[in-house]
Computed example of a mutant assay.
Amino acid sequence: MLTGNILTSAGWRHGRIDIDAGRIAAIDAVPVDPAGNDAPYIVPGFIDLHVHGGGGADTMEGAAAAVTMARLHACHGTTSLLATTMTAPRPALRKVLVELGECAQTRPAGAARILGVHLEGPYISPSKLGAQPPEAVVAVLDEVLDYLSVAPIRVVTLAPEISGHPRIVGELAARGVRVQVGHTLGTYDEGVNALKHGATGFTHLYNAMSGLHHREPGMVGAALAHAQYAELIPDLLHVHPGAIRVALRAIPQLYCVTDSTAAAGMPDGEYRLGSQGVVKCLGAVRLKDGTLAGSTLTMDKALRNLVSLGLPLADVSNYVSRHAADYLGLSDRGRIEVGAWADLVVLDRALALQATYVEGEEIVVEYA
């Protein structure tokens, strides 16, 4: 049983949530303006669809690392996530996908639920790698289907301008995989064409894609003009606050991701991001050449960053919870409703994390 100001699907309520067998059994509460009391906030657990690591562990290291990552992020309010891969040679990528597929079958105690995999690469532009290793390849359907056979791949990032990729988009969409446009030098028209073929989102909007110009709107223009969904990294390093506001006005169900690395939750120093070394310093993670390489962001910090821009907490909750759930078609996560999973975050009045509940289990918050 939890009590406080509860952000339900019908708005703010003050009262009690009863939990049974990992799900919300009852909500006994009345409408409230939370500004009128000092009770804590209870909001839906955060959902991160793009996370490479945390707690010193990198997804590409396999199942044990994924569990470490899932535990670190649960301590920051993330209740479910997609383990996100890096571009790598086929044998290494397939091996880690097999391990992540096994890891997604159960949820270890104290960890966020791993909903599946976000395959970020290798089907990206070799001219827009960002922090990805130079192992990009053209997608071949048999290879993609083999990957799908060994892991629950929920999201795939690819560059749509590469010959043959529009067909791959359609094949994946027909199988229920969410295809995102990213790491791309594609034009506005190529972005629109990808959406027509079944693409449904954009990977870390603005970053590692052709930018907006009034005569060449680029992939950013395609997203702002046509996207229903897109992910964005709100660490206030990857995207300027003004550009965040533009995206929030243009894209109805924008959702936030961390794109976090093994350096999340760790002191400054050297870490791994896939096959590459990265350095954490002053809150940023970079390759040795200075390129931003993922982040140290956690979802509780993402929430506070967005609120610091003047956005209402109820709206921000959608950006870090519900929209991501809707994107994956999950009607029982990312919301506080009777029958939904008891994935909950308790925040004090300063929005500091007090508790995380993953499927009803209270997580011991060691890092917050």
Rank of each mutant, 00 (worst) to 15 (best):
G54N: 09
V117F: 11
Y206C: 07
Y327W: 12
R178V: 10
A25R: 15
S295N: 05
Q253Y: 10
V98C: 13
L328G: 08
I336T: 09
G329A: 09
L97E: 11
E362C: 12
P134Y: 11
K280R: 15
L158T: 01
H226W: 09
V279C: 07
G211C: 03
L212V: 10
I168S: 01
A199H: 04
F202R: 07
T291N: 12
S331P: 00
D268I: 11
D300G: 05
H50T: 08
A63C: 05
A151C: 05
N305S: 09
A111D: 11
I168C: 01
Y319E: 02
G201R: 05
L49W: 01
N193M: 11
L129E: 04
V345F: 09
C75L: 00
I27P: 03
E361A: 11
C281S: 14
L353Y: 01
R272E: 10
F202I: 12
H50N: 14
E161L: 06
A243W: 13
I6M: 07
A173I: 01
R113W: 08
L172Q: 00
V169R: 00
L205E: 06
Q276G: 08
S331C: 05
E99P: 00
L195P: 00
E190C: 06
T79W: 09
R23A: 13
E171F: 00
P89H: 09
A284C: 10
Y147R: 01
V257P: 04
D289H: 03
A325N: 09
T298A: 10
T203P: 07
V278F: 13
V140Q: 04
A35W: 00
D259H: 02
A109R: 12
A352F: 09
V67A: 14
G218T: 12
A104K: 07
T84Q: 09
L158F: 06
Q354K: 15
G53Y: 10
A64G: 13
T106M: 12
P234E: 08
A350S: 15
L313C: 06
P89K: 12
H50R: 13
Q180L: 15
R13D: 03
A352T: 10
A342V: 14
R272M: 14
S317L: 05
D326F: 01
M1Y: 05
R322D: 02
V320Y: 00
T187I: 03
Q180T: 06
D38H: 13
V279G: 00
A136H: 08
G182Q: 10
L145S: 07
D326T: 13
R107V: 13
R113I: 03
T87L: 12
R23F: 05
H50E: 13
V51D: 03
A293G: 11
Y327A: 03
V285C: 12
P133A: 15
K196M: 07
Q354G: 07
T200Q: 14
E161P: 02
G121R: 01
L297E: 12
I124A: 05
A35I: 02
K301W: 02
G101C: 08
A88F: 03
I153V: 15
I114K: 02
A111Y: 07
